[in-house]
Design a protein around this nucleic acid. Structure first.
Lengths: 268, 268
DNA sequence: TTGCTCCTCACGTCACGTGAGGTGGC
DNA sequence: TTGCTCCTCACGTCACGTGAGGTGGC
């Protein structure tokens, strides 16, 4: 017979742990003094306690362990559960490694004085239906404000006439053309059930995916530096963009200098 | 201005998360409607939210993030903290890997039908002062009960005369001798302040360390199979024993068949 | 009027650690 | 009588998830 303190000492667990296992019914003392509630354990209870400790080290929860021990699990079953757990463990291990790599990326970028890129966030993007108006251009050295003014005016005009309500803020997309030029695309999300026949406005579905994103604050004329930061981040993180960037005009109500725009690169 | 739902959507966090960040003061809404408590956010708050998300992904706690953001941390400081965190992450990663290896060991042993070894536990052993009586033998093919009866009778007799109280159960140790024979050692823990002058009883300090342990239930005559299980476990786990085994007679009061003994191998 | 969005509690999570406040035997 | 061991609550941990129960505007 061991009092709880000595039993804890030989088993190298805390007294609190033994009390906890009593509470949850995982390991009841061999005897409890009815007068003062003192718990007493037998040496013969050590194999059970050790089994608990081993299973815990293997990553099972106390609830799982309770079930396993109560059910008098066979070696074969244990083997199966262990293999399952190992698969889980491998996954969390891979995630940990990813995180470590992520930290290393950020450290490198910080050392390169590109502090801005320290708020690049990768997030899922949902599939959505958009309405868009396209205009080709000879590259990125163009008068963006003028072009997009035209695009959005056409887009919102036609949507209004067709009684289709835009969802959320306007988007800018860019597309490669067969003739080597670039498509400037003004777009906005619409209801997936909406449809429209128009010469200028095209309805299209964007697929779901992952994107590296960065919030650009202020006038779009200073946008290139934000794009650069995003691109540097992707390079350092070993991510590859799928196509050109996207712009989401989260706040374009006030003065151009106080606009807030999310830049996105869809990742492969 | 975004209502909490749309702000959550663009930032890809849950509404609950935004409320939580408000509660802990990490990200207060730009405006709260005094009438109904509705929270409203501005696009310009996204950079802060993204910084929070990034720092969280890097493994900082919300409390740490709060401090970092409030203090307007410099890139250099961030770099330092990141490196610290990376060291931590590397350690937990190594532990995860150890666990995975451990699982693989157990899986192998289970497949080899050595289910018994599935309750081998590695635990720290404390440094302790012991009193011991030694008798050489020609190997392990001897009459253990008789020898140890002699050893313990001498040991407890002398301790009693010297008024030294034994602490805990009796131990059996084994030692290599220069002449190729084996020392059979009966021992017991005593107070670290205790001392004794005797021809037969020697006081000695055992160092702290780690040991692989297994509980043997029943008569010591069936002990070899438990020792074998322990040794198989060590081999599979890539651990090396430092010297012979130790035995701790946790319960040797009743019939020999109901004894409970802990077998230990100190690990290098 | 029916949905939809928003609100505020408040419990639950996982396995104990850590006091607080009190008791019984050497 | 002073330590020591034991006891039972009960809060705290970490970052929210998940109802419960209720309200205000299209």
């Amino acid at each position: 017979m061991f009092a709880i303190g000595s039993f804890a000492q030989v088993a190298k667990v805390s007294v609190r742990t033994l009390r906890h296992y009593d509470d949850v019914g995982l390991l009841r003392p061999a005897r409890v003094d009815p007068a003062n509630g003192y718990r007493f354990y037998e040496a013969a209870q050590l194999p059970r306690l050790n089994r608990i400790i081993v299973l815990k080290e293997l990553g099972f929860t106390l609830a799982e362990i309770t079930r396993m021990i109560e059910a008098g699990i066979s070696p074969d079953e244990l083997l199966g559960m262990l293999k399952l757990r190992r698969t889980e463990a491998e996954r969390t291990l891979a995630m940990e490694q990813q995180r470590l790599a992520d930290m290393t990326t950020r450290i490198q970028l910080l050392q390169g004085e590109r502090a801005m890129s320290s708020s690049v966030v990768v997030k899922p993007i949902d599939a959505m239906r958009i309405a868009q108006v396209t205009e080709p251009a000879d590259g990125f050295n163009v008068d963006f404000p003028m072009i997009f003014e035209r695009l959005y005016s056409t887009l919102y005009g036609e949507l209004g006439r067709a009684r289709i309500a835009p969802i959320g803020p306007p988007l800018a997309l860019y597309g490669e053309r067969a003739d080597g030029r670039v498509d400037m695309i003004g777009a906005v999300q619409i209801d997936p059930d909406a449809d429209l026949a128009s010469d200028s406005v095209v309805i299209r579905d964007l697929p779901a995916g992952r994107a590296a994103t960065l919030i650009h604050e202020g006038n779009m004329s200073t946008c290139p530096s934000s794009y650069q930061a995003l691109q540097q981040w992707m390079e350092a993180a070993g991510e590859e963009p799928d196509g050109y960037g996207r712009e989401i005009y989260l706040d374009c109500d006030g003065h151009r200098d106080s606009w807030v725009t999310e830049l996105q690169f869809v990742l492969k």
